[in-house]
Design a protein around this nucleic acid. Structure first.
Lengths: 340, 340
DNA sequence: TTGAAAGCGCTAACAG
DNA sequence: CTGTTAGCGCTTTCAA
């Protein structure tokens, strides 16, 4: 069983062993000041022998800094979020800050103890604008610097970064309309505010055209759930021209189930999603998607956060990243239908 | 710009507002003791009005507990690790602990400041047995409870959980041998100790058969890198019977590049990987892989960690999870070659 | 039922 | 160069 849990050495232990004051040790281990060679030697030896390392909590209490920044994501298994983390991570590393991550697991429970876990253990936080309001309120109270990802955010006092979901919906809608699609199903995820925005955008793109839109709701934005619901969508009321899913994971589930049902994509029905996750390129047919710029979002959000932490007093930005349709094999023009 | 960074309310502020001592407030907010209705009302009011919340660092300094556990992963974009996190997360939640994650980004730099970020901010840590020795030594010094994932680990004093890489290699080797393959390339990743173990297992499975094995080394265990190296492997010295990659990400890169080169998998060459990530089922052809039980590993590792944290004094286990070959479309029997 | 006081391990003036 | 002295915000005996 783990080595006899001996109490870790403290500054005081080191001070005693090296026969100096704790202040001296503190300055030494932090590299804030040089001492006589003789003292430094004693210090170094004591530190080594005791296996001493600073207690960051005690340190943080005084300095008010932790050297960490945090990001709260909604599902670590969703490549959109992992890309976001990568982007944020790169920028944080550049500023010599460590990034720690907490996964809210798509839970929207108001307590959101996940916030608690990072709370005060980081110098700043990047969080989703999808987090429940009371949670965000708590966050504000604490005075922790915060930047939101995901547009739009309704917290005007703070930075937010992300693609506009409505616009993204419009873009994908146009793409499908141009392909001659009119009968469409949207597999949304009502657990995410973003979903309805994408849906509205989709609708908007078809104004003036005789769109027939059926809307379904997924219980989770995952491949498995897409697979589960696909048959309902595919087999009811005749085949759509296209099925749009709230995200690529759902869309890929649909692809999978279509295959097992013997329905050809894109020949019989087009399928598209949002996020443009890397795997979309690997599936077959390759998935058409709207790039929601996960990585760039993470990068910029972190850059903004660093600014806030440094106390820069620029006005809060509402950065809107440009999304774009990435057309691949899963969407194809419909032959005009023979009408009666 | 973020609300004028007002200093967050402290226990003392609440105590003054409610006209009680800090000790009383402490007991109240922790729910450790009841007070007269009148006092509780004042307390509740003060807390609400000041938007007070406990400072977990100050608290942790005294109690020595943080209510958090941590896991260090090597690449948040690799689904093997995210599955591991999911498993660990579920168990942690069951024990009312929050899980925080740090991504080492496949860096093996000895300083590994990522450890620093979680250090003392968690009650226990799940880390890869692939972490550099000096880093692990530091960890031990601190007395933090720790459990390793990934077999085999050479730290007998601590729990470890994972599939045996050598055995997994043997299993995949047997599968390929049974399919009549003899000429094989292994795309390894020398950055991971696990890679060479898998390779050895692979070799072992062909003992007695006239195996011809070429070994390549990837700079990173990613799809892009697999794609990059695929042409070298596919186009040199005639086609192999099979290409085995260190992990599924690399294997998927090979699949992609093979397609663009017009080489048919599995008709002309089989491709297989390790980890059995969920996306392997979605690509085309579906990828044959060895399931390395990421999620189960995370679950069990966390269960072990909770035991250590609770101070259970059972002997350290070296849990070996059973891996298994998941044969899909990307591997197929070779017609016996016409020999001269 | 409530409060006083002594720290947890560290840093930050300020002296010497 | 080195040490003294106050705390940071909280919990925890121990008294009252």
């Amino acid at each position: 069983m783990n080595v006899p849990r001996r109490r870790a050495a403290t500054l005081k232990d080191v001070a005693e062993a090296a026969q100096v004051s704790t202040a001296t040790v503190s300055k030494f281990v932090n590299g804030n000041q040089r001492f006589t060679a003789e003292v430094e030697a004693r210090l170094a030896r004591a530190v080594r022998e005791l296996g001493y390392s600073l207690n960051p909590m005690a340190r943080g209490m005084i300095t008010g800094k932790t050297g960490n920044v945090g990001v709260i994501i909604l599902d670590i298994r969703n490549p959109y979020f992992t890309s976001l983390v990568k982007g944020a991570s790169r920028v944080a590393a550049g500023a010599a800050l460590n990034l720690i991550i907490a996964d809210a697991a798509e839970s929207t429970s108001p307590e959101l103890s996940v916030l608690q876990s990072l709370f005060r253990r980081v110098d700043g936080l990047i969080v989703s604008s999808r987090l429940p309001a009371p949670v965000i309120e708590t966050l504000f109270q604490s005075g922790t610097p915060v930047v939101f990802y995901g547009r739009p955010s309704s917290y005007a006092e703070h930075h937010s970064v992300g693609c506009d979901n409505y616009t993204a919906g419009v873009m994908l809608g146009r793409h499908l309309r141009d392909l001659g699609h009119r009968k469409i199903s949207y597999l949304g995820f009502s657990g995410a505010r973003w979903s309805v925005e994408r849906e509205h955008g989709l609708r908007h793109a078809f104004e003036g055209a005789d769109l027939s839109l059926r809307v379904f709701d997924a219980g989770a934005p995952s491949t498995e759930e897409g697979e589960r619901l696909a048959s309902t969508i595919l087999l009811s009321q005749g085949l759509d021209d296209a099925i749009v899913a709230y995200n690529d994971l759902l869309a890929m589930g649909i692809l999978l189930e279509a295959k097992s049902l013997g329905i050809k994509v894109p020949e019989q029905v087009s399928v598209a999603g949002f996020d443009n996750i890397a795997y979309g390129r690997l599936v077959s047919p390759a998935l058409t998607s709207v790039d929601m710029m996960g990585e760039a979002t993470g990068e910029l959000a972190m850059r903004r956060l660093l600014g806030v932490i440094k106390g820069e007093t620029t006005a809060p930005e509402d950065d809107i990243l440009q999304s774009r349709v990435v057309a691949r094999e899963s969407t194809r023009a419909r032959k005009p239908r023979v009408n009666a």
